Amino acid sequence: MRSIIFHILLLLLLSCSGSEKKAKLKQVSSLEEVPQGENFKIFLEDFSKIEEFQLSRIKFPLSDCDYPGDEDSNCIYWTKEDWKQVILIDTTHTPTTIRTIYDNFSLKMENSGERVVAFEATETNVCAYYYFKLQSEQWFLIKRVVCAD
């Protein structure tokens, strides 16, 4: 009789912990959901490799600001004719440069239609931030910020 009660309690405990795990998994997956639209990583590869595609996915005139630290930013605005193609996928695998993709302009991780591709050099104040926004289910570069000592 005791073994039957033990097995019933064990089954109850396992079923409760299983549903708790499912609830946690559901919570995590809802945080990782992306807004509807094209896959950002695939977009970023095409953006980096195909010059015509890149030009079609930049909102011109593009704001390009130097952020020297504690001083005011100096901004210029790129036109389509003056823009030089940039490659935002890591082809060097240099350990001194860290590339991070944030999913909003606040540089925090949350579900949004925004991405920031950040290149930050370790032990220096050299960085570049590329701001993308999802518009009509397509990604567009809308701003760039560069900082240096």
Results as ranks from 00 to 15, higher is better:
2 R>H: 05
3 S>A: 09
6 F>I: 02
8 I>W: 00
8 I>V: 04
9 L>S: 00
12 L>W: 01
13 L>F: 05
14 L>M: 00
15 S>W: 00
16 C>L: 04
18 G>Q: 01
18 G>L: 02
22 K>V: 10
26 K>D: 13
31 L>I: 02
32 E>D: 07
34 V>N: 06
38 E>T: 01
38 E>D: 04
41 K>R: 09
42 I>D: 13
42 I>S: 10
42 I>P: 03
45 E>S: 09
45 E>M: 08
46 D>M: 13
47 F>D: 11
48 S>Y: 12
48 S>E: 06
50 I>G: 02
54 Q>T: 01
55 L>W: 04
56 S>E: 10
57 R>S: 05
59 K>W: 02
60 F>T: 07
63 S>P: 06
68 P>Q: 10
74 N>Y: 08
76 I>M: 02
77 Y>T: 06
80 K>Y: 02
81 E>H: 03
81 E>T: 10
84 K>T: 08
85 Q>W: 04
85 Q>F: 04
87 I>N: 12
88 L>P: 12
89 I>A: 04
89 I>M: 11
92 T>C: 02
96 T>P: 01
99 R>T: 10
103 D>V: 06
105 F>P: 11
106 S>N: 08
107 L>M: 14
107 L>H: 12
108 K>S: 15
109 M>R: 13
112 S>Q: 11
113 G>A: 08
115 R>M: 07
115 R>Q: 14
117 V>W: 09
120 E>W: 03
120 E>N: 12
125 N>C: 03
125 N>A: 09
125 N>S: 08
125 N>E: 03
131 Y>W: 13
132 F>R: 15
133 K>D: 14
133 K>C: 13
135 Q>V: 14
137 E>A: 05
139 W>F: 04
141 L>Y: 11
142 I>G: 14
142 I>W: 14
143 K>Y: 15
145 V>P: 03
145 V>T: 11
146 V>F: 14
